[in-house]
Nucleic acid binder design. Structure first.
Lengths: 218, 218
DNA sequence: ATTAAAATTTAGACAAAACTAAAAATTTGT
DNA sequence: ACAAATTTTTAGTTTTGTCTAAATTTTAAT
């Protein structure tokens, strides 16, 4: 697998191509900041190799083999992120770009050793689950903060947007994974929220709330 | 810098192109298992970028900038090797291939953090010096075991050949860096040596002896 | 049900990095 | 010194992954 092939597989996976729903050429192109025609070319190549299902004009979806491959790349990416944060003191907004490179390192043994060194973490620094060696991963029951009912209390368990700007915003406002969050008020006008994070009350926009995952207390 | 450019720079450095002596196109091609014509192409490109001195039919040598670049790659390679051995329990015969990939990861901060995590090692697992961030490195006063005078005693400080087969041979014979070695006898016929390594006496061929570096006791 | 708009594919081109085969320059042997 | 051998370069081709522009198919709207 070339680096480029791996990036396509990963993108299709993230766009949901692991289900039966095929992903549109355009959607892949947009996500990868490339042209639709390039996607078509690669779709043919990946179909040839048995990684994706592809029929002209019908979009692209991953085969079982493609999903297995995607999970292996995602596993590497997320384990490297944990490594960077836990062992090298990187902050959660710095690790994505570096992990984008490290995920392509070819050595089964290396990533298994990293996994072991980190004591087999289940989640990455952004709260995303890390697939195991055999491709299984925890699907945590979580919901967007924006969808939590009024007064409900939960624990912040992940972010949807992992861009440095969003993560830095959270840092600045002392919102971190593991924090307890309660929805105190919802503003009908702009859908902004008044929330309490640990001992601090603050207002956040709908856009912020719809990028934070919370596990509701039962 | 592309991965390919980096590999050329590194090869030229290892062939001694850091000195004023230019390296022959053929030598580079042979080392890299590529064709001389490919080397010519790349030489032009690297000269264009100010990394090498190149005049037709005159061979290739690194510019100051090229040397700086080479040292940065070598630094990364060797630090990753130490990391693999010290933190992930790889053996010294497994790390080269993986480090060949890791050395191309682009992040100054990453390699500096790895350096720090390892407590700024001076040598890699094969005894080769690790350049510092600013490109300086220790040149240890060492000599080949094959050139040691009879009866002299030294400490094993490095290997010339870093192939897995050679390193495994050393493991099998309990020869490791840091061991004290004495030359007990030299066989004129085949230049083989009778040596004592720590508490063990053994015979080694000239080929083995000429791939082991020793620091002579003063 | 057509037609307009949008999405997708095809065809042809390009850059990087490699190759082969042929040409040119350098080195070597006598 | 000069022919032969070797080394190096040039010229032209290939592969991978990308692009643009044009053609085609699908989707949406009236």
């Amino acid at each position: 697998m070339t680096r480029s092939e791996e990036n396509y597989i990963k993108t299709i996976f993230h766009l949901g191509g692991n289900t039966a729903t095929p992903i549109a050429t355009n959607a892949i192109a947009e996500q990868m900041e490339t042209k639709p025609s390039s996607v078509t070319d690669m779709a043919k190549k990946l179909a040839e190799k048995g990684l994706v299902n592809y029929k002209k004009y019908q979009g692209v979806s991953l085969t079982d083999f493609g999903i297995k491959t995607a999970l292996s790349i995602v596993r590497k990416h997320r384990l490297w992120e944990v490594f960077l944060v836990e062992k090298l003191d990187f902050s959660w907004d710095e690790v994505h770009e570096i992990a984008e490179q490290l995920e392509h390192i070819k050595s089964e043994k290396l990533i298994d050793k990293i996994d072991e060194l980190l004591d087999f973490p289940k989640y990455d620094p952004h709260g995303d689950p890390i697939p195991t060696k055999d491709g299984k991963f925890m699907v945590r029951d979580k919901q967007l903060l924006s969808e939590m009912p009024l007064k409900s209390i939960g624990v912040c368990v992940g972010v949807k947007d992992t861009s440095a700007t969003f993560l830095k915003f959270l840092d600045k406002n002392n919102i971190a994974l593991g924090n307890t969050i309660q929805v105190l008020e919802k503003e009908d006008f702009d859908m902004s929220l008044h929330i309490q994070v640990e001992n601090q009350k603050l207002n956040i926009s709908h856009q912020i709330a719809s990028n934070l995952y919370v596990k509701k207390n039962d």
